[in-house]
Amino acid sequence: DAPDEFRDPLMDTLMTDPVRLPSGTIMDRSIILRHLLNSPTDPFNRQTLTESMLEPVPELKEQIQAWMR
């Protein structure tokens, strides 16, 4: 099983494109984008959230890719 820090906190699946929300939570980009289609909010604190506020986490993405090899 993947380490917890590699798993999306909402869907508990392996992240492939991790992004940091303004709240500091790291999620998979595809999952948070799907959530934003229904509700333009951070799913953990209900603060306003837009796609432009998502910050890529390239170092975590590299760690996940290395773990998958």
Results as ranks from 00 to 15, higher is better:
D1Y: 14
D1C: 15
D1H: 14
A2S: 09
A2Y: 15
A2F: 15
A2C: 15
A2H: 08
P3K: 06
P3D: 03
P3R: 06
D4G: 13
D4H: 15
D4T: 14
D4E: 14
E5G: 10
E5K: 13
E5S: 12
E5N: 13
F6I: 03
F6D: 02
F6M: 07
R7G: 02
R7S: 04
R7W: 09
R7Q: 05
R7P: 02
R7N: 05
D8F: 04
D8V: 03
D8H: 04
P9K: 07
P9A: 12
P9D: 05
L10P: 03
L10Y: 10
L10Q: 05
M11T: 14
M11R: 08
M11I: 07
M11P: 01
D12V: 06
D12T: 09
T13E: 08
T13M: 08
T13V: 12
T13N: 07
T13D: 05
L14C: 08
M15V: 02
M15A: 00
M15G: 03
T16S: 11
T16C: 14
T16E: 12
T16V: 13
T16F: 11
D17Q: 05
D17C: 09
D17H: 06
D17F: 07
D17K: 00
D17P: 01
D17T: 04
D17G: 02
P18F: 03
P18R: 02
P18N: 01
P18Y: 03
P18M: 02
V19H: 04
V19S: 00
V19P: 02
V19R: 02
R20Q: 07
R20H: 04
R20S: 05
R20W: 05
R20Y: 04
L21P: 00
L21D: 01
L21E: 00
P22Q: 03
P22L: 05
P22E: 01
S23M: 04
S23H: 05
S23E: 01
S23A: 06
G24P: 01
G24M: 05
G24V: 03
T25V: 15
T25C: 13
I26D: 00
I26H: 03
I26E: 01
M27R: 02
M27T: 04
M27L: 06
M27W: 05
D28R: 01
D28G: 03
D28H: 03
D28V: 04
D28Q: 07
R29T: 04
R29W: 08
R29M: 07
S30W: 13
S30R: 12
S30N: 11
I31F: 05
I31K: 03
I31V: 15
I31P: 01
I31T: 12
I32V: 09
I32Q: 01
I32H: 00
I32R: 00
I32G: 00
L33V: 11
L33G: 04
L33E: 08
R34L: 13
R34Y: 10
R34T: 10
H35Y: 12
H35K: 05
H35N: 04
L36I: 09
L36H: 01
L36V: 05
L37G: 09
L37V: 11
L37E: 13
N38M: 14
S39L: 07
S39E: 11
S39W: 09
S39D: 13
P40F: 10
P40C: 10
P40I: 07
P40H: 12
P40W: 08
P40A: 13
T41E: 08
T41M: 09
T41I: 09
D42V: 02
D42K: 01
P43G: 01
P43H: 02
P43C: 05
F44Q: 03
F44P: 00
F44Y: 07
F44R: 02
N45E: 06
N45A: 06
R46Y: 14
R46H: 15
R46V: 06
R46E: 12
Q47F: 08
Q47Y: 09
Q47E: 13
Q47H: 10
T48N: 12
T48A: 14
T48R: 14
T48Y: 15
T48C: 14
T48I: 13
L49A: 00
L49F: 04
L49I: 08
L49N: 00
T50M: 10
T50N: 12
T50F: 12
T50V: 10
E51L: 12
E51F: 09
S52L: 10
S52N: 12
S52R: 10
S52V: 10
S52W: 12
M53K: 05
M53T: 04
M53P: 02
M53E: 10
M53R: 05
L54Q: 01
L54P: 00
L54H: 00
E55W: 08
E55T: 13
E55G: 05
P56W: 08
P56S: 11
V57W: 07
V57S: 05
P58M: 08
P58Y: 09
P58L: 10
P58Q: 10
P58K: 09
E59H: 12
E59Q: 11
E59M: 11
E59N: 09
E59S: 11
L60P: 00
L60A: 00
L60C: 07
L60W: 03
K61R: 13
K61W: 10
K61D: 04
K61A: 10
K61F: 10
E62W: 12
E62M: 13
E62K: 14
E62R: 14
Q63D: 07
Q63C: 10
Q63A: 15
Q63H: 08
Q63L: 15
Q63V: 10
I64P: 01
I64S: 00
I64E: 01
I64M: 04
I64T: 01
I64D: 02
Q65C: 13
Q65T: 10
Q65M: 15
Q65W: 15
Q65K: 11
A66I: 11
A66D: 13
A66F: 11
A66E: 15
W67E: 02
W67D: 03
W67L: 05
W67T: 03
M68H: 15
M68Y: 12
M68R: 08
M68W: 13
M68A: 10
R69Y: 12
R69N: 13
